[in-house]
């Protein structure tokens, strides 16, 4: 199979009369990390919600490993781990109980769940907080719980929305190291972030979204070429792509 996530001609949004996304087509392949870039309101979270199946496309389709949500909800939902922009945890569950619930929900074998949860707690420096209720955690720690829960089932696709908000430097490093590991093991990662320097370092390809349309996609060189004047960095290319019409023509 050559793609994990395949989005074809996706038009979608909250109201059929006012689509937010327009005719988007892209894929994410095994063993690659794809960065999703865009200004606030560009449609990044809306793309992720469509892939999660929380929103219905007006047109087009979304497949994970060749399966759509309608065809096989169980397989589709087992195929991704998701880290939302804002941590969403159960107030009455502790950190380790969240991991146990995640392991049960994704049908991870019990010995694997035990080994992986211990390792994740250690890697993210959360072992001392394992019995803490989520309400007693800082925002960064809550984000770590979300990340650990996404990593626990070792799915073929990771969708990560603004993961660095509130994370401490060690947490950011642990996350990036783990994402590189899962990528090398063959998983696909779709990650949205405003920290362009980090995306430039870690991502293999980029999707640049502006007003719900893909204004550039591909490798760093592809994105640079799409921007006027072929700037050196992703940040400069992004700036030029979103501050001018269509990505060509001189900067104002």
């Amino acid at each position: 199979m050559d793609t994990v996530l395949e989005v074809k001609q996706l038009t979608g949004g909250y109201s059929p009369r006012r689509p937010v996304l327009h005719e988007l087509s892209f894929d994410v392949r095994p063993g690659e990390m794809v960065g999703l870039l865009g200004l606030n309101g560009a449609g990044k979270s809306t793309i992720i919600k469509h892939v999660l199946g929380l929103m219905k496309p007006h047109r087009g389709e979304v497949m994970i490993r060749g399966v759509s949500l309608e065809q096989d909800p169980q397989t589709y939902r087992s195929s991704y781990g998701y880290v939302p922009e804002t941590p969403v945890l159960y107030d009455e569950l502790t950190v380790s109980e969240h991991l146990r619930l995640g392991g049960m929900a994704y049908d991870v074998a019990e010995p694997d769940y035990r080994a992986r949860s211990e390792r994740l707690l250690r890697e993210f420096n959360m072992t001392p907080k394992r019995e803490a209720f989520s309400g007693h955690l800082s925002k960064g720690m809550k984000q770590k719980v979300m990340i650990m829960n996404a990593l626990l089932p070792e799915p073929p696709l990771y969708m990560i929305d603004e993961p660095f908000l509130g994370l401490d430097p060690l947490g950011i490093r642990s996350l990036l190291e783990r994402l590189v590991q899962v990528k090398e093991a063959g998983a696909a990662v779709l990650m949205s972030s405003h920290i362009l320097a980090t995306l430039e370092t870690y991502c293999d390809r980029f999707l640049v979204l502006h007003h719900g349309r893909l204004v550039a996609q591909g490798t760093l060189d592809d994105v640079r070429r799409a921007a006027a004047g072929e700037p050196d960095t992703l940040e400069e290319a992004f700036y030029r792509l979103v501050s001018e019409e269509g990505g060509d023509g001189p900067l104002a």
Partner: peptide, 10 residues
Amino acid sequence: SIWRHLYPLP
């Protein structure tokens, strides 16, 4: 809860 729609649970 959002997880009701995301977890692979019937």
